[in-house]
Amino acid sequence: MTMKKEYRVKKNTDFQAAFKKGKSFANRQFVVYSLKKPEQKHFRIGLSVSKKLGNAVMRNQIKRYIRQAFLEMENEIQNEYDYIIIARKPVTEMGLQEIKKSLTHVLKLSKVLKA
């Protein structure tokens, strides 16, 4: 299953808004910016994976894992938010389940998971 287009943050202005106005939370693997958008019907995610983390194949795999983790957690995530996820170096050695666990941890810190 793939992530629908309307679930993605693509525009630079949307990224910048999340960086400026949103709240950020981090652990060793991820930085997550969350920006509340009350008019939104479902969450959107934007991904940032630096070239320092590896070649294109590695970066795309990381992005696929993050998207998949979000799809699996879809019901637990609050809908009226934009999330910007920035991957850090340790992610390169992680599998899907570890990435999901780490993302869940950061989202719990940011208090955006439904109780």
Rank of each mutant, 00 (worst) to 15 (best):
M1H: 11
M3V: 08
K4A: 13
K5D: 05
E6I: 04
E6D: 12
R8H: 09
R8C: 11
R8Y: 08
R8G: 01
K10W: 07
N12Q: 12
T13F: 06
D14E: 15
Q16G: 00
Q16V: 13
A17H: 09
A18S: 12
A18P: 02
F19G: 08
K20R: 12
K20A: 13
K21Y: 12
K21P: 05
G22A: 05
S24Y: 02
A26Q: 15
N27P: 06
F30D: 01
S34F: 05
K37Q: 14
P38A: 11
P38C: 08
E39P: 06
Q40N: 08
H42E: 09
H42A: 09
H42I: 01
F43C: 06
R44W: 03
I45G: 01
I45K: 00
L47G: 06
S48M: 12
S48E: 08
K52P: 01
L53G: 05
L53M: 08
G54H: 01
N55E: 06
V57M: 04
V57L: 03
Q61G: 02
I62S: 01
K63P: 07
R64F: 00
R64E: 02
Y65Q: 14
I66V: 12
R67T: 09
F70E: 00
F70A: 03
F70M: 12
F70I: 07
E72G: 02
M73G: 01
M73V: 01
M73L: 14
M73S: 03
M73Y: 05
E74A: 13
E74P: 00
E74F: 11
N75E: 14
I77W: 04
I77L: 14
N79L: 06
E80T: 07
E80R: 10
Y81Q: 05
Y81F: 15
D82E: 15
D82F: 11
D82M: 10
Y83N: 05
I84S: 00
I84C: 01
I84H: 00
A87C: 07
A87F: 05
R88P: 12
K89Q: 14
K89R: 14
P90Y: 08
P90I: 13
V91C: 07
V91W: 02
M94G: 05
G95V: 03
L96Q: 10
L96E: 01
Q97A: 10
Q97G: 02
I99K: 03
K100S: 10
K100Q: 14
K101M: 04
K101R: 07
L103A: 10
H105W: 15
H105F: 15
H105K: 15
V106Q: 01
K108D: 03
L109G: 09
S110L: 12
S110V: 10
V112I: 15
V112W: 03
V112S: 12
L113C: 06
K114M: 07
